Simulated assay, not measured.
Amino acid sequence: MNASRVLVVGAGIAGLALARALCQRGIIAEVVERATDWQPSGTGLYLPANAVRALHELGIGPAATAHANPIGRQRLLNHRGRLLANIDLDRIWDGVGGCVAIQRAALHESLRQATAEVPVRLGTSVTDLEIGGAPQVTFSDGSTGSYDLVVGADGVHSTIRNLALGGPPATYVGQASWRFVADGFSDITDWTVMLGRGRTFLTVSLGQGVVYCYADLNTNDPATAASEDWRRAFAGFAAPVPLLLDQATEAYFAPIEEMVAPAWTARRVVLIGDAAHASSPNMAQGAAMALEDALVLAEMLTADQPVEQALAGYVQRREARVTWVQEQTHRRDRTRNLPTTLRNLTLRLAAERIFRSNYGPLRDLP
């Protein structure tokens, strides 16, 4: 490979996973992160089996899953707590591996420890980027650098995507969301979603009575939703939602946004993770796609081929897979927004078949 000077912009899951994958192949990238410190996130993640498989390929599977809680079932209920479907995840992911839930901070810490030798400059962002045979980068501290490759791993509102490709901006998909972690619920041991009309409430056990909670509702006005007491929208949901909401005063708010970038590369600049293809979280594939991106890009970059050819190969291998995930998120949204009676009947009769179809292609290696 003729790209030994690699700049990774963003030290989240995608950026550190790529730094780790490159380290495994003898390349030490430089990483910059606009955050000024390593602020631990209080929210959680549900990682389907393809994400866990990717962690093992990165060599951090045991370290990460030591802090994770196995998830063997996904239960779908109506908002009153009546069971619609009970999905056995071993049947969905047979031959791939198990699914887990983990605190986001714990996963991030595992990635940080695995990339301890990688130089990371906190409080540093990219302010200018000149694309060419050796991209020229200007940083927020006034320093500059010349690189063989610049990787935008800087999330759905990517600066690198804007500088290199001129956008586009992320698209709001019509849902506002809140995330928080609650404690003291040892009776919650799995993944359970309650479906109301235009709103959902998800609980995922992180182990030892700690629960990751995710709530969303359909709205054309996310700013108003953010300013009001969102918990009132879930007041009619069955137990344990009312008790969980008592611990939601500091919930993290975010509008759900999607990114369908017309291109992921520009000469020797490439996008990975949410910077390239953010999607609704209803497939729980955000982290999985970022981890897979990192593995595939590192593999292509360390093959005996020019950088531009490696980037083209990366896009070719990844584009259909992430497009599939985005299409499935749209289908899931359409299903959950069916008239209540029809939605409930559909899930009672066909939930496992729908799940098998959703995740089928993701059982294969990326």
Rank of each mutant, 00 (worst) to 15 (best):
A51H: 05
L83V: 14
R80A: 13
G98L: 04
N50K: 00
R53T: 03
D94W: 05
L89R: 09
A54V: 04
P40M: 13
G98N: 08
G81L: 04
T43K: 04
E57S: 11
T43D: 14
H67G: 00
A66W: 02
P70L: 09
A66N: 09
V96D: 06
L89M: 11
G44H: 09
L84H: 07
D90M: 01
D90N: 11
G98W: 00
G61W: 08
L76S: 10
T43N: 14
R91W: 00
A66D: 13
A51S: 10
I92W: 03
A54Q: 02
L89A: 05
Q74F: 15
R75K: 14
L89V: 03
R80P: 00
A63N: 07
R73K: 14
T43G: 08
Y46S: 10
L77D: 06
L84D: 11
G44F: 05
R73M: 04
A51Y: 04
H56P: 00
V52G: 08
E57Y: 02
A68L: 07
G72P: 04
I87Q: 01
D90L: 02
V96N: 03
P40R: 13
T43C: 09
V52C: 12
G59R: 02
A54H: 00
A64Q: 09
R73A: 13
P48E: 06
P70M: 07
L55G: 01
D90H: 10
L89W: 11
L47R: 03
R82C: 02
G42V: 13
L47C: 07
A66Q: 15
G81W: 09
I87E: 01
G42S: 11
R53N: 06
H79P: 00
I92Y: 02
L83R: 15
N50S: 04
P62V: 08
R80I: 05
A68Y: 04
N86G: 01
G44N: 08
L89Y: 12
G42K: 12
D88M: 03
H79K: 13
R82M: 08
G72L: 08
N50V: 02
P70V: 10
R53Q: 11
Y46M: 09
G97P: 03
Y46N: 09
L76P: 00
I60T: 01
L47V: 07
H79D: 14
N86E: 11
V96A: 05
P48M: 07
P48I: 05
W93F: 12
L45M: 12
W93L: 02
